[in-house]
Amino acid sequence: MPSPLEIVRVPVLSDNYAWLVHDPGSGTTMALDPGEAQPLLDAAAARGLAIGEVWNTHWHPDHVGGNAAIVAATGARVVGPEAERGKIGQLDVGLGEGDSATLGDHVAAVMTVPGHTQGHIAFHFAGDGAIFTGDTLFAMGCGRLFEGTPSDMFGNMQRYAALPPETRVYCGHEYTLSNGRYALVAEPDNAAIRERMVEVEARRAAGEPTVPTTIGAELATNPFLRARSVEELAERRQAKDVFRG
């Protein structure tokens, strides 16, 4: 049985989260979605870790902006979506649906989850009960459809909803407060949303993070994961895009 992964939340830019993921058994460490380099390098140095890999879920600059500097500082290997190779600098290993990525003794299944970007991937460490969803599934929300369709995102939500409810969800932004305010409008009779928002508001007022979340929490409170059809998801996504709550 591999030693449990050590997962460190690293705030970057204005509201992004990058992740430092370490396998104690092998000593292997990777930086996931580093929007900028220095916070990841500092977090690793503070723990006596050496970053050997960079993993990207998609090409947006707030998720890959630190790649080059981390590679320059550490010689790390860059892993990411093959479909977005032309948009991600220094991509060494391109992956897609059905592939796997390994971090020491831990294996992540790669899921292609289009919509936010068409090559977007997620990394599911089933054995660790963890998934890194980038900008597709957020706490109480989902990503904007910059390159894809509501059908794409609805398919992603169906796949996420089928995961074990205890699965921890590590996403790319601290959007929970604004997502929750929209969720209250989308499902005004959902008591679970109201209850969750009490905690979310308290955490944010104290400057504390609300991520990671779990699939179970999202099944109860996320209006996009709970959408019953492509049409309902499309309606909710369009409404959220202009929501000012």
Rank of each mutant, 00 (worst) to 15 (best):
A192K: 11
L95V: 15
A46N: 03
L32E: 00
R9A: 11
R9N: 07
L40C: 10
E195D: 10
G98V: 01
T133G: 11
P209S: 15
I131P: 11
D189L: 10
T214I: 12
V242K: 13
P212V: 10
I215E: 07
R228T: 13
E97Y: 10
A37M: 13
Y160N: 03
V79S: 02
R194V: 09
L219A: 07
A18T: 04
G141F: 05
V113W: 02
V185T: 09
F224L: 15
C171R: 06
L49D: 02
T29S: 12
S229A: 06
T213W: 00
V10F: 01
T133S: 14
R144V: 06
Y17W: 13
I88G: 00
W55H: 09
D99L: 13
A217K: 06
P11T: 07
E199I: 05
I51Y: 01
G86C: 03
A161K: 08
A68H: 14
D152H: 07
G80M: 05
T29R: 05
A43Y: 04
L103V: 07
L163M: 10
T133M: 12
E84G: 08
T167D: 14
L163W: 04
L103W: 05
P39I: 03
E231M: 03
G52W: 15
T29D: 08
E231Q: 10
E97M: 14
L32Q: 01
G115L: 08
G75H: 10
L40D: 01
W59N: 12
S100T: 15
G129Y: 00
E84K: 04
Y170D: 13
L137V: 10
G98Q: 06
Q90G: 15
L5M: 01
G66M: 12
D189N: 07
A206K: 15
T221P: 08
E36S: 10
A50Y: 05
L137M: 12
E201M: 12
P81I: 01
V10D: 03
E166Q: 15
R244K: 11
R181P: 07
R47H: 02
V107D: 08
A130M: 12
